[in-house]
Amino acid sequence: MKRKEFLNRLIGEVSNFLLEGNPLRMVISLHQEEDGAHLSFFDDRKRSEEDLKRIREALNPKHTRPELAEYYGMMAGHDTSWDARLKLIGWQIKHATVRNSDSGVQIDLWLGSDAFNPDQFTIEKDS
């Protein structure tokens, strides 16, 4: 899949999710590397611990699901009229961290090819 299309999907779905909270500020930051990328999303709406846990679980599924990622993952970010479904992108990324920053929620997504090396990125294992 083209990198542009993949990033569009992820940005669309997470933006959809954050916009459901009606934020006054939202920032998306992309850092591309040779075999991977890091996407950061920030808004100005802090979430409860329970919400953060729910988001974390959706973005970090217990099992890899290639049959769902490849086929149903195509719906991610396509139509933002409906409720966001973070699970659709959880199956397609390498890792995600979710936390409250100073002003609101911060979601970081790490994605890449099968050759993706997480050691080259600053992934926080406990978040």
Partner: peptide, 10 residues
């Protein structure tokens, strides 16, 4: 360039 798993439902 996908695995058969990716298309198994299809």
């Amino acid at each position: 360039g996908k695995t058969m798993g990716s298309y198994s439902l299809i």
